[in-house]
Every structure is written in structure tokens, then in C-alpha cells.
């Protein structure tokens, strides 16, 4: 189900072109129990890609530098596939309607709600989840800053908050307090730890800059 060769960080990802979509490349590797029979899709390259409702098609995702191939239905959200098919449960699901941010992941370095992203739409993109911020088993900068500043309570919104801050810092390494607020304004925290999240974001920015930036 997944390629074992983990890519070195920042190494260029192998190009996954549109042609991989619906070609048979993934079929040999699929095998997830979805309850729906896999259907070999239309492999013609000269017309729009069409997948009927209820059909599953093979898709290749690049998650945290690892290529994963699996079968998906058109309606399966990226959040569902991450959590229930790939069992990468660092990504949480709070509302499944794009309102809370617990499912935030980076798609090509940009924070998005994975619950409002069809998995098929994420093909060809570089997906980064909470697990992808770890350096081996060590916490990444943003994660360490959250620990140090106690920027969470129950911890369920936390992966999304961390990803929102990570995304913010990738595009803006030295954010002001207002930019930090805005950056995490799409992530609800019912425990109300926002003041500590602001502090953690500042600290994470310092930590990242301290080592010459870049993740």
C-alpha cells in the first residue's frame, strides 16, 4: 500500500503526472477493504477523466515525502482517506464541513481543510500532515514550541493549529501578532488556548529562524 523508500527531506519528489491518474499503475498495489469493488477506469488520454459514482479508482498521493497508492471513491475526502484508510490519525476531524480546522494539512505548503478537499483533487500535490513535521521521532520546531508554551489542552484541535502555524511560517517567517492571529483564525480551539498558541507561534518562528529557516 505504500512505498517503503522514504524520500530524503526537501528532495525533489518524483513527478506524478496527470497520466498516472486512472492508469493501471496503482492496481497492483491496492488492497484496502473498501467494500466497493475496484473498477479499472478509462485510460484514454484524449478526453476528460470520468469516474462514475460509487466506483473506486487507484490514486497516488504524496504524503510526507512518501508515495501512497490506494483506491478511492470520487467523494472520499482527503481527511477520510488519511484517517480511516491510511490510519494517519495525526490529522483530526472535528466538523467535516470546513469550519473548525482540526483537519488542516498543507497542500503544496499551503494550509487547507482536508475535510473539504476531495482526495482526487490532491493528486499531484505535496501533502504534509502533522506526522510529516517530525524529524524521525523528534518533534519539529512548531510542535516543540507548542509543548514549551503549553499551547493546547485536550489536544484535538492541536494538529490543525500546528499545521496552520507551520503553513504560516513557511510563507511568512517573521509574522506579527496580528498575522499570527489571522494565520490560526481558521482553527477553532474550544479549550480556549489561543493566547498560548500565539506565544508558541512566535517561539516557533524564532526557532526556525535561529537555524537558518526552512523545514
Amino acid at each position: 500500500m505504500e512505498d517503503n523508500h522514504r524520500k530524503k527531506k526537501n528532495a525533489a519528489e518524483p513527478g506524478v503526472t496527470r497520466r498516472h491518474f486512472l492508469t493501471g499503475t496503482g492496481l497492483g498495489a491496492v488492497g484496502l477493504a473498501t467494500g466497493v469493488p475496484a473498477v479499472e477506469g478509462d485510460t484514454k488520454t484524449d478526453s476528460a477523466v470520468v469516474i462514475e459514482a460509487g466506483q473506486t479508482v487507484p490514486v497516488t498521493l504524496q504524503i510526507n515525502g512518501v508515495r501512497k497508492r490506494l483506491l478511492v471513491e470520487p467523494r472520499w475526502s482527503l481527511a477520510y482517506v488519511l484517517r480511516e484508510q491510511l490510519v494517519m490519525t495525526g490529522t483530526k476531524l472535528g466538523c467535516d464541513r470546513g469550519e473548525c480546522g482540526a483537519c488542516t494539512v498543507l497542500v503544496d505548503d499551503v494550509p487547507r481543510y482536508s475535510c473539504m478537499t476531495l482526495t482526487l483533487e490532491a493528486e499531484d500535490s505535496k501533502i504534509t500532515t502533522l506526522e510529516g513535521l517530525l524529524d524521525g521521532e523528534e518533534l519539529g520546531d512548531v510542535q516543540r514550541a507548542f509543548a514549551e508554551k503549553d499551547a493546547f489542552q485536550c489536544g484535538y484541535c492541536t494538529p490543525g493549529q500546528v499545521m496552520a502555524v507551520e503553513g504560516l511560517l513557511r510563507s511568512n517567517p517573521d509574522p506579527s501578532i496580528e498575522e499570527i492571529r489571522t494565520g490560526v483564525s481558521g482553527n477553532l480551539c474550544r479549550c480556549g488556548t489561543y493566547p498560548n498558541i500565539f506565544k508558541a507561534a512566535h517561539l516557533a518562528a524564532d526557532m526556525k529562524r535561529g537555524r537558518g529557516g526552512g523545514s
Binding site: 494517519m88 490519525t89 483530526k92 502533522l130 489536544g155 484535538y156 492541536t158
Partner: peptide, 17 residues
């Protein structure tokens, strides 16, 4: 439990699979 909650290692009941 900061590590568990921040790394994704914590398994919440909704994560159980």
C-alpha cells in the same frame, strides 16, 4: 503527554481503527 498530543502518537477514541 505533550509528545503524544503533538506528534500524532496519541490515539483518541475517534482515531481507533
Amino acid at each position: 503527554d505533550a509528545y503524544q498530543r503533538l506528534s500524532g502518537a496519541a490515539i483518541y477514541p475517534s482515531d481507533v481503527n
